[in-house]
Computed example of a mutant assay.
Amino acid sequence: MTDSAALCANETSEELQGQPEPSGLPLTPQALIDVLIDIDLAYERKCKELSKSNLGATLQYHLLEKLRVQHSEQREPFAQRLIALQDELKAKGDS
């Protein structure tokens, strides 16, 4: 991997990992949505940066695929928590 490719890959991993992790704290639906938006915007920005880079097509493809997987893994717990929270609120409303 070239130095610029390694730098892109490291920046991508660090940026996605820099997002807050879900904790035991009860987050509001809006807070979860805000986190998901931040994660998605960071992902889109990194995809554009990688697509515009001078890296070879094969390397770009692999880095974009790695970015996609990281994005999916990072947003999953927040999406699941939001679904659970919506279910809890719906159950309370039905009671």
Rank of each mutant, 00 (worst) to 15 (best):
M1Q: 06
M1I: 02
D3S: 12
A5R: 02
A5P: 07
A5T: 04
A5Q: 04
A5Y: 01
A6E: 13
L7T: 08
L7V: 08
C8M: 09
C8N: 05
C8I: 07
A9L: 13
A9D: 12
A9C: 12
N10F: 01
N10Y: 06
N10P: 01
E11R: 13
E11I: 09
S13D: 12
S13R: 14
E14N: 15
E15S: 14
E15C: 09
Q17A: 11
Q17I: 00
Q17N: 10
G18F: 02
G18A: 11
Q19E: 09
P20Y: 00
E21F: 03
S23V: 03
S23C: 08
G24I: 07
L25R: 15
L25E: 15
L25V: 15
P26I: 09
P26Q: 14
L27S: 14
L27C: 15
L27R: 08
L27E: 07
Q30R: 14
A31C: 10
L32K: 05
L32I: 08
I33V: 13
I33N: 08
V35R: 02
L36I: 12
L36W: 03
D38E: 08
D38N: 11
I39G: 05
I39F: 02
I39A: 10
I39E: 05
D40E: 09
L41S: 08
L41T: 10
A42M: 03
A42N: 09
E44W: 03
E44H: 08
R45V: 05
C47G: 09
C47T: 10
E49C: 05
L50V: 08
S51Y: 05
S51C: 06
K52M: 08
S53V: 03
S53W: 03
S53Y: 02
N54C: 04
N54A: 09
N54K: 09
L55V: 03
G56H: 02
G56D: 10
A57R: 12
A57E: 15
Q60L: 05
Q60K: 15
Q60S: 06
Y61W: 12
Y61H: 15
Y61N: 11
H62G: 01
H62D: 13
H62E: 09
L63G: 00
L64P: 02
L64I: 04
E65R: 07
K66G: 14
R68M: 02
V69K: 06
V69D: 07
Q70N: 04
H71Q: 07
S72L: 07
E73V: 11
E73W: 05
Q74R: 14
Q74S: 07
Q74P: 03
Q74L: 06
R75S: 14
R75K: 15
E76V: 03
P77F: 05
F78M: 04
F78N: 00
F78D: 01
A79F: 11
A79I: 01
A79W: 05
Q80I: 00
Q80F: 02
Q80T: 07
R81V: 01
R81P: 00
R81K: 05
L82K: 02
L82C: 11
A84E: 15
L85S: 14
L85T: 15
Q86W: 06
Q86Y: 11
E88G: 09
E88M: 12
L89Q: 15
K90N: 11
G93E: 09
D94C: 10
D94W: 10
S95I: 10
S95Y: 01
S95A: 09
S95F: 05
